[in-house]
Design a protein around this nucleic acid. Structure first.
Lengths: 336, 336
DNA sequence: AGAATTTACTGAACCGGGTAAGTTGTGGTG
DNA sequence: CACCACAACTTACCCGGTTCAGTAAATTCT
């Protein structure tokens, strides 16, 4: 079945291709009567402009790219990405931009994908997640002059806009809360140490702990349940084990809860647990987990808005959005 | 920065645009020496063919579409979709096809997205999930002659290829296993009743139960943790409550486990739990959940292969792939 | 050696929209 | 009535690849 083109509409309306283009794009150059006639015909025959033809003349592909650079194994259960994606979508589909997705194994491959996408003019911009120290993606994005928004800073990104949340404030709130409950030995199981927001959190955790006269014990991990379990076991076999653990994501917190239960420790009696990034997962388990909640979808929507503005040529500045706040649930209590 | 085109290459190589096109696409019509010279220049200046221009002449967009039609809330935690996506990706990126994603609220909107994508020639085919009874998407896909592969049958899809897994065999295996352990009161918390694979499972569950002389008690749910909790509570407050529950996905099973613990029931002592769709989630909780495991990524990869074959004009037949098998873990044991 | 075929290209049309420049026709103005 | 301004179009070319018809030179065949 041949898909209709503006030439088909032009023939049926008895006008030229150009007139149809003007009419459908709301440009001046056609009378209101003709415009309505053309729009009606387009409606009737189910016309959709060929995006390739449009991109070829107009330069905009009306699509943005997102790469997911984590092992497939963990991608599957981290609610974070899906939350982010639905946030993007809400904003993108409202402006009828498509979202192109690619799963990559390493930052090097990710850079290759950016080069290809941009070279092929497949996308108008990209959303970059998991900013690292001396991130190799940043200079490439600048060199390509590819519109981008970076999530997970703050860090050095030159002219590229960033969005981040106040992780330092959130972890400070969590530690203060645990101390108020009477905890003195608070440990933390962190995400990938190479990521900038992990470093921000670690620094803030160290600061608040030392200012309260506590020892800051952070065990690095990688966001997976397996590593979260392992880190938790290492912490709990210690003679003066912590009475509370803060995890950098929900998946590791759930894994930690299981380890505590397996070792016969009562949660929250013997061990309090705080999870970063609230998700339905946190309320599903027993006891439900106290979490540092933030609206990830809104965070994603915000990033998408900034990116679209940047694509439109507007100057975009760095913004802080989606500060997390503590949602107390059953997994935290005064230590016995 | 101006991105290079074949005209730039042609000028530098001192040949015509046509020759460059032949050379880069491995077509006959240029000498090996010229081809290598052209390829070298393309490499050097970092040439990528403009996908829009290509799609405009060649008709192929080198992209496939996937819509996710579930509320964002559950999308976030269902490992299933992410597993499927990484499976697609493995196959698609190997053949340098892009994956275009859209989150939709209803099947009606999903159909609209298909129409638009196809009309805009943005995609060459789609992967359709969650086949329903009298699915409204099927006639539209046929009318548009949009290449598609359907996951989640079997059902009536006419000429459109389907991929499904042997859900009936899997649930039969699970029931037989529980009966062998000594269970006589086995309940099931199902997914959305409108989905065909849910119906397949329900039918098989009824069959095996009646053939073993058991009562088949299925409580319909919707794959969310909330509904899974509610269904579990309803089952467990009963005077002759089940000694084992089979859940249609991992999220509901985890929720069910939490409800049992909250009600003071020991798992697996008082209640055995079997989860459909194994994911890291199942091994994270305590006790780890016995699951009906299948390789979802491979399932997705298979679907992608079929779709690409169908786009290439090959006749694709219905296939059964990725049969689930029982992975016993700590959540199942003989009833007390 | 001359004809027939093959090789290695060139030139131009084409895909389907966008858009600048040119062409009507209408009405107003001095 | 001639002149100008403006709306309402049409014409023609552009974007960047693909592809087909044509052409000249090199190679093969008889």
């Amino acid at each position: 079945m041949k898909r209709p083109t503006i030439a088909d509409i032009a023939r049926r309306a008895g006008v030229s291709k150009g007139a149809v283009s003007y009419a459908l794009n709301g440009q001046p150059g056609v009378s209101e009567a003709t415009r309505q006639r053309i729009v009606a015909i387009a409606q009737e025959i189910g016309f959709n402009p060929n995006s390739a033809a449009r991109a070829l003349s107009g330069a905009s592909a009306r699509a943005v790219g997102l790469t997911l650079c984590r092992p497939a194994r963990i991608l599957g259960i981290e609610p974070w990405f899906m939350g982010l994606i639905s946030g993007f979508e809400a904003e993108l589909s409202a402006r009828s931009y498509a979202l192109t997705l690619q799963v990559v194994a390493t930052p090097e491959l990710e850079v290759e994908v950016y080069r290809r996408w941009w070279g092929e003019r497949r996308i108008d911009g990209v959303i970059v997640t998991d900013l690292r120290e001396n991130d190799i993606r940043i200079p490439v994005l600048q060199q390509l002059q590819l519109p981008a928004v970076v999530i997970g800073g703050p860090g050095e990104t030159g002219t590229i806009a960033q969005i981040w949340s106040d992780d330092a404030g959130a972890i400070t709130e969590a530690v203060r809360y645990l101390v108020a409950l009477g905890h003195r030995r608070i440990a933390r199981v962190s995400g990938l140490p190479g990521l900038l927001h992990t470093q921000t959190r670690t620094r803030a955790f160290n600061d608040i702990c030392s200012s309260l006269g506590l020892e800051a014990n952070t065990v690095p991990s990688d966001y997976t349940g397996e590593e979260g379990s392992r880190a938790t076991r290492r912490l709990l076999i210690d003679s003066d084990r912590p009475t509370a653990i803060i995890y950098d994501n929900d998946v590791m917190a759930v894994a930690g809860l299981a380890v505590a239960q397996e070792m016969g420790l009562a949660v929250p009696g013997d061990l309090s647990i705080v999870a970063w990034d609230d998700s339905p997962l946190c309320s599903l388990v027993h006891p439900p987990l106290t979490a540092l909640t933030r609206d990830i979808a809104e965070y994603g929507a915000h990033a998408a808005r900034e990116l679209l503005a940047s694509i439109d040529g507007k100057q975009v500045s760095n913004v802080e959005a989606g500060t997390a706040h503590l949602t107390p649930r059953g997994s935290t209590a005064p230590p016995r």
